[in-house]
Lab assay of single mutants.
Amino acid sequence: MSIQHFRVALIPFFAAFCLPVFAHPETLVKVKDAEDQLGARVGYIELDLNSGKILESFRPEERFPMMSTFKVLLCGAVLSRVDAGQEQLGRRIHYSQNDLVEYSPVTEKHLTDGMTVRELCSAAITMSDNTAANLLLTTIGGPKELTAFLHNMGDHVTRLDRWEPELNEAIPNDERDTTMPAAMATTLRKLLTGELLTLASRQQLIDWMEADKVAGPLLRSALPAGWFIADKSGAGERGSRGIIAALGPDGKPSRIVVIYTTGSQATMDERNRQIAEIGASLIKHW
């Protein structure tokens, strides 16, 4: 067993022997301040990774656009098919120029040779490549099948209805392509620590998230040296922004954090800054 596999296998073990965790309302004060600064709703939840206990939450059962955070769930569904012998990570998928959609920095470079399922998941999570996500959605049967996968996990809230990039439209009061912070946090925890996926697939999923290259201005910008984070960000229309993450000190994750916002007129930089400040408060009061 590799060191990384050992780390993920012992996530519940280490967490069980940690000192009790206590909620700190100071972080919620910052979440509410972010709402004021952005002029928009902000949803927040913080779960203990081992027990699933909610440590703090704000608007945990209000719907927010998922945006690209759905790509972690998508690759979880792909990995479940791999575990069941219905898919192979090494299978190569070929596609054409007509398949390319807006923001496809990886797939646009491989029109000639195609990409493997493993490479597509890596591109979808680490670079948020939209064509990679659409190609992977095709392998599982489309958005409705991802929703069905989530329902089978016990998540009857999260739903995907459309493809990239239309799913980022974020129309107010439109339930399409949305989740709730509580539902997303619980589902992410199941994917990373539950028995739904094999140990190898859980490790692969967290490795992809740990290698995320496009979430630097968010929670990662607030992390002290030595902290662990595996995350996936999302951005959408109407001032929408979000991030889902597993993080913790001492090089291992111990909490799940989900943050979503929508309806702001603020710039992307300002949305990023507010999420980073929430992260800084979380870490300060850990």
Results as ranks from 00 to 15, higher is better:
residue 26 E to L: 09
residue 27 T to S: 09
residue 27 T to F: 06
residue 29 V to T: 13
residue 29 V to L: 12
residue 30 K to H: 09
residue 33 D to M: 02
residue 34 A to Y: 12
residue 36 D to L: 09
residue 37 Q to W: 07
residue 37 Q to L: 11
residue 38 L to Y: 12
residue 41 R to T: 06
residue 44 Y to R: 01
residue 44 Y to T: 04
residue 46 E to M: 15
residue 46 E to H: 14
residue 47 L to H: 10
residue 49 L to H: 13
residue 49 L to A: 13
residue 52 G to V: 11
residue 53 K to V: 13
residue 54 I to P: 09
residue 57 S to M: 02
residue 58 F to S: 10
residue 63 R to M: 15
residue 63 R to K: 13
residue 64 F to M: 11
residue 64 F to G: 00
residue 67 M to V: 12
residue 68 S to W: 00
residue 72 V to F: 08
residue 78 V to E: 12
residue 80 S to W: 15
residue 81 R to D: 05
residue 81 R to C: 07
residue 82 V to A: 11
residue 83 D to Q: 04
residue 84 A to K: 13
residue 85 G to H: 07
residue 85 G to A: 07
residue 85 G to M: 07
residue 88 Q to S: 11
residue 91 R to Y: 15
residue 91 R to S: 09
residue 92 R to Q: 10
residue 92 R to F: 10
residue 93 I to S: 14
residue 98 N to V: 11
residue 98 N to S: 13
residue 98 N to M: 04
residue 100 L to Y: 05
residue 102 E to C: 04
residue 109 K to W: 10
residue 110 H to Y: 14
residue 112 T to Q: 04
residue 115 M to H: 02
residue 119 E to T: 09
residue 120 L to W: 01
residue 121 C to R: 00
residue 123 A to G: 06
residue 125 I to L: 03
residue 126 T to Q: 04
residue 127 M to N: 15
residue 127 M to H: 11
residue 129 D to W: 00
residue 130 N to P: 01
residue 130 N to A: 11
residue 131 T to A: 03
residue 132 A to H: 01
residue 134 N to E: 13
residue 137 L to V: 12
residue 142 G to H: 09
residue 142 G to C: 03
residue 144 K to Y: 03
residue 144 K to S: 03
residue 147 T to M: 05
residue 149 F to Q: 09
residue 151 H to A: 07
residue 152 N to C: 06
residue 154 G to K: 09
residue 156 H to Q: 11
residue 156 H to L: 10
residue 157 V to G: 15
residue 158 T to C: 02
residue 159 R to S: 09
residue 160 L to D: 02
residue 160 L to A: 12
residue 161 D to Y: 02
residue 163 W to S: 08
residue 163 W to F: 03
residue 167 L to T: 10
residue 168 N to M: 15
residue 169 E to V: 03
residue 170 A to E: 02
residue 172 P to K: 13
residue 172 P to A: 11
residue 173 N to F: 12
residue 174 D to M: 11
residue 181 P to H: 01
residue 187 T to A: 14
residue 187 T to C: 08
residue 187 T to Y: 15
residue 188 L to R: 00
residue 189 R to I: 05
residue 190 K to M: 04
residue 191 L to M: 03
residue 192 L to Y: 05
residue 193 T to W: 04
residue 194 G to I: 11
residue 195 E to F: 01
residue 199 L to F: 14
residue 201 S to H: 15
residue 201 S to K: 14
residue 202 R to F: 05
residue 203 Q to L: 04
residue 205 L to T: 13
residue 208 W to T: 12
residue 210 E to G: 14
residue 211 A to E: 15
residue 214 V to P: 10
residue 214 V to K: 15
residue 215 A to Y: 10
residue 216 G to E: 08
residue 216 G to L: 08
residue 217 P to A: 13
residue 218 L to H: 03
residue 219 L to N: 05
residue 224 P to R: 09
residue 226 G to V: 06
residue 226 G to A: 07
residue 227 W to M: 10
residue 229 I to A: 13
residue 231 D to M: 08
residue 232 K to V: 01
residue 234 G to K: 00
residue 240 S to G: 11
residue 240 S to E: 15
residue 242 G to H: 13
residue 243 I to R: 01
residue 244 I to M: 06
residue 244 I to A: 14
residue 246 A to G: 11
residue 248 G to R: 11
residue 249 P to I: 14
residue 252 K to I: 12
residue 253 P to T: 11
residue 254 S to T: 09
residue 255 R to L: 06
residue 255 R to G: 09
residue 256 I to D: 01
residue 258 V to F: 02
residue 258 V to Q: 01
residue 260 Y to H: 12
residue 261 T to C: 04
residue 264 S to F: 13
residue 264 S to K: 09
residue 266 A to I: 02
residue 267 T to L: 04
residue 268 M to C: 08
residue 273 R to Y: 09
residue 273 R to N: 06
residue 274 Q to C: 07
residue 275 I to E: 01
residue 276 A to E: 09
residue 278 I to V: 14
residue 279 G to Q: 04
residue 279 G to I: 06
residue 279 G to C: 08
residue 284 K to Y: 08
residue 284 K to T: 05
residue 284 K to A: 05
residue 285 H to A: 04
